[in-house]
Amino acid sequence: MSIRTPLARSRGLGSARSGTHHWWLQRITAVALIPLAVWFVVGLVVIGGADHATAIAWVGHPVGAVLLVLAVAFGFWHGQLGLQVVIEDYVHGEGCRIALLIVMKGAALVLALAAILSVLRVALGGAV
């Protein structure tokens, strides 16, 4: 017999009130990143060490720009989920942990925005 209420069981949210949401998002973003990472590395190998004109042609390519924005978005999304677990595992002081989590998530958001806006700027012809 479980001491949990039928409502708690059917909700399946557990003590953290979020169920498997974090775990599941980490897997979704991981699966999305498999093809994106392979495409990204192949692309960089082909244009590696390129001059500016070659690089912006690759970054701004109609299909490439979409994939690059997806790679950056999923990369940062997956990365901040992983770093969150690392911080939660190793930083034991509650105040310090919360502060670090906020700074890390904020930094991930700012960096992802900077990268995505750069891709869009190149793709829309703002960089020459």
């Binding site: 500016h52 690089a55 912006i56 970054v59 690059l68 950056v72 990369g75 960096l111 900077a114 990268a115 806006l117 750069s118 891709v119 700027r121 190149v122 703002g126 960089a127 020459v128």
Partner: peptide, 11 residues
């Protein structure tokens, strides 16, 4: 990667 992309957009 962010540095590379921002630099590409900057010029």
């Amino acid at each position: 990667l962010v540095w590379w992309l921002v630099a590409a957009a900057a010029g």
